[in-house]
């Protein structure tokens, strides 16, 4: 079975269940179906334990699904590949390699010559604003800088699918906003030569609205909503105030249980609700 042109990721009846320590079987994903277009920036949002991270691990090839098929490109995913780069929630930058060696590690694994990979690594370090710490040890860097290193590494490695698992969750607001810009800039720049499909897991509604072309909402292992965001880029504070964005925000907040859903319309609004009271 070959994927149609233009489709980067396809999940068919994807299910994953775990046996908890107490012996109970828990469904992390139940019969999930979706397709992601090449070059699309997709945010996965949902409450904790809704299966977002599990899905990312399956796409990365770090976990085999209990049932169903996941295809990336034209192939069924069975193991990790440098075509699917991942930025983990935890700090995964290798503390025993200098920053520059971290960024070029994937290229070294694939046998890229030392001069060429050094040039590529230096380019991406410069793009994320870390050229000055190329020779530093990771422990000398702040949390935000480590995330920049991880982002530079996946881009340097040339993956066509980028999987980001709450990458900026632990960062302060300012650092997070800077990293959004870094990520979007690199995504747009490198996308001109080769489309980069991004799957970005987050809890943060504003983050999803700033970043995504499309938002998939997860709840208890299922996709419960699929929103397309057509707002132009680059998105600013004003973009988030556009009526459709505000409406999407209310919808997402309702999905996360932070606002109540309005019967009938499916849309929600705390303002409307306040007026009704």
């Amino acid at each position: 079975m070959r994927l149609e042109n233009g489709i980067a990721i396809k999940a068919s009846q994807l299910s994953q269940s775990f046996r908890r320590a107490d012996g109970q079987l828990v469904d992390a994903l139940s019969s999930v179906n979706f397709e992601v277009l090449k070059g699309q920036f997709v945010c996965l949002i949902g409450p904790s334990g809704c299966g977002k991270t599990t899905l990312l691990q399956i796409i990365a090839g770090l976990l085999l699904p209990s049932s169903g098929i996941l295809e990336v490109g034209n192939q069924v995913v069975t193991r990790p590949s440098p075509e699917r780069g991942m930025v983990f929630q935890k700090d995964s930058v290798f503390p025993w390699m200098r920053v520059i060696n971290n960024v070029e590690y994937g290229l070294a694994c694939r046998g890229v010559g030392s001069g060429e990979r050094r040039a590529i690594a230096e380019h991406y370090l410069e793009r994320v604003g870390l050229a000055h710490v190329a020779r530093a040890w990771p422990r000398e860097l702040s949390g935000g800088m480590l995330k920049r290193v991880a982002v530079a590494t996946v881009f340097a490695n040339g993956a066509s699918v980028l999987l980001l698992d709450e990458p900026f969750g632990a960062l302060d607001y300012v650092t997070k906003r800077h990293l959004h810009n870094v990520l979007l800039t690199l995504w747009a720049e490198t996308g001109r030569n080769k489309p980069r499909t991004v799957l970005f897991v987050t809890h943060d509604v504003d983050e999803a609205l700033i970043l995504a072309d499309r938002i998939l909402v997860f709840h208890t292992g299922r996709i419960v909503d699929d929103l397309a965001l057509v707002a132009p880029r680059p998105r600013t504070t004003d973009t988030l105030l556009m009526p459709q964005m505000v409406q999407n925000k209310h919808l997402l907040l309702a999905h996360l249980g932070l606002e109540t859903k309005q019967a009938g319309t499916g849309a929600t609004s705390s303002i409307v609700r306040a007026a009704n009271d």
């Binding site: 990365a60 991942m86 983990f88 490695n157």
Partner: peptide, 11 residues
């Protein structure tokens, strides 16, 4: 996480 990260980078 280091091992998983290395695998996703192509190690």
């Amino acid at each position: 996480v280091y091992e998983e990260y290395a695998y996703t980078l192509g190690a």
